[in-house]
Nucleic acid binder design. Structure first.
Length: 356
DNA sequence: AATCCGGTCAACCGCGCATTG
DNA sequence: TCAATGCGCGGTTGACCGGAT
């Protein structure tokens, strides 16, 4: 089936937007909302296709867009989330408030990717090209990697839930209900709010049965009906405000098949103050910038995967890649993430401005 | 001063998914 | 059930800019 063009291309303008066009688009959306993108250009008096209008709005004109240099914590978040999610820029963007997926993608391709490659880290796999950081011969590190893999699956499932909630919110927007208090209208970018918080609030009131092939989300609440039988891994949000990650024992060799129970506060990064305290004590400028680092899943990542204080790990001397690689292989409880961050840190000197 | 070259980023393109009729 | 439609995502392009030669 041939795909019909998104709009009649003949006579439509392409290329850079003029200030006049921007003004027209901005004025129209402010007054009417975007509604149907396809119909918008005609209504707004623009000789553009709807797709072009949508892109211009979401990537440039949207009032909540944060422009300018990426902060250190934003960079860290991008690196970590990219390692988990790959090139899922929109998913990554939900963890970086007011940044667009396009901006993040560009920044990754022009800055971070090259920087990681320069440091000897494969920007695709996020593993050291020499393999020393991955600790593949290190059982504990392998377990950490396995945990991360499962958490990535969880994140994928969560993103599916976000998408579903966003769709549901379209319906609920007309008749808001208490359980949809945090559902975002579709014309509000997901990045405009705290995504994890909103999503989990939404989850509390809605039974969501995700059909992820590897992970499922279930909700034990008054609204939950038939719960699916867990096939592999499972995340459960209970009425007692606990989030339980159920990991299959056969996928994590040697681990007990038990529930890892995180308080909802952990998951919702409401414990960020504690992390800030961890970093505030560090005098290294780079680390002080890490106060409050991470967002949403990234935050949980640190809480769960780090077996000791992250600042202790990151605050160690940085004398180059080799030493860090050796450290990573020598210390059993240093996981891959600390290794990556360590190496990033080693690229920085107190004299040089942090990154870029 | 002119040209070259690499970096940056806004914008486009094509595809996939969800929805609709 | 299936084709048509709309939207969003990720990859890519190309214009622009600043520094180097």
């Amino acid at each position: 089936m041939g795909r019909s063009p998104c709009c009649e291309k003949i006579g439509l303008k392409k290329g850079p937007w003029t200030p006049e066009e921007d003004q027209k688009l901005l004025a129209f959306i402010e007054e009417h909302g975007h509604g149907s993108w396809r119909a918008l250009p005609a209504k707004a008096g623009l000789q553009r296709c709807g797709k072009s209008c949508r892109l211009r709005w979401t990537n440039y004109l949207r009032p909540d867009i944060k422009r300018g240099k990426f902060s250190l914590q934003e960079e860290q978040t991008i690196i970590q989330l990219h390692a988990l999610l790959g090139n899922r820029w929109s998913a990554i963007a939900t963890h970086l408030p007011n940044r667009t997926d396009n901006e993040i993608k560009n920044y990754w391709n022009t800055h971070l990717k090259k920087r990681l490659a320069k440091m000897g880290i494969d920007p695709v796999t996020h593993k050291s090209l020499s393999g020393t950081l991955t600790g593949t011969t290190n059982n504990k590190s392998a377990k950490a990697a396995a945990s991360l893999s499962h958490m990535a699956q969880w994140e994928s499932a969560r993103l599916e839930a976000e998408a579903r909630l966003a769709r549901e919110s379209k319906i609920r927007t007309a008749t808001p209900t208490p359980t949809a208090l945090h559902a975002q209208p579709t014309n509000v970018p997901a990045s405009a709010a705290s995504p994890c918080l909103d999503v989990l609030h939404g989850w509390q009131g809605a039974k969501i049965d995700l059909e992820s092939p590897t992970s499922t989300l279930t909700f034990t609440g008054s609204n939950s009906g038939m719960l699916p039988t867990p096939r592999t891994n499972r995340l459960e949000v209970s009425e007692s405000n606990s989030v339980m990650w159920h990991q299959r024992s056969d996928e994590l060799e040697g681990e007990e098949n038990d529930w890892q129970i995180f308080s909802k506060h952990q998951v919702l990064e409401l414990d960020s103050k504690e992390r800030e305290d961890d970093f505030i004590g560090c005098e290294e400028p780079w680390f002080s910038g890490m106060a409050g680092v991470g967002s949403g899943f990234t935050s949980m990542l640190f809480d769960v995967s780090n077996e000791h204080d992250a600042s202790e790990c990151w605050g160690e001397s940085n004398n180059g890649h080799t030493e860090h690689s050796n450290q990573a292989s020598d210390e059993e409880d240093k996981n891959y993430w600390n290794g990556v961050l360590d190496m990033v840190n080693s690229e920085l000197t107190p004299q040089s401005p942090p990154l870029v």
